[in-house]
Design a protein around this nucleic acid. Sequence first.
DNA 1: CGGTTGACCAAGT
DNA 2: GACTTGGCCAACC
Length: 103
Amino acid sequence: MNFFEEVYKLCKEIPRGKVSTYKILAEKLNTKAYRLVGYALRSNSYVPKVPCHRVVDSRGRLHGFGGSTSQRFLDRKAKLLRKEGVKVKDHKVIDFDKVLYKF
DNA sequence: CGGTTGACCAAGT
DNA sequence: GACTTGGCCAACC
């Protein structure tokens, strides 16, 4: 079981309309390498099999959604996120506390 | 095998 | 409030 797969598994556990953070996922993996979570997601973001759009940083911001990765692709996910009940404004999660899924 | 990297985080400047 | 610094740790080269 790779570190990546662990991350993916946790991502799938996030229910619809909820989001989680890199930090929480990292802690669930029993590690402090928050970066690795994002690192893992980056490698797999092109696959709908992992709802990586439900994972944001600790302040409710969607990272890389505005510069690093393909904006269009991720922007589509941001919209999907809104559709699921998570309000997203300019790649930032509104009501972050309410939609935060703490496993 | 060693150095760099990264979709992070928190605290400091 | 934007930017820098130090720290974390697996994957990558």
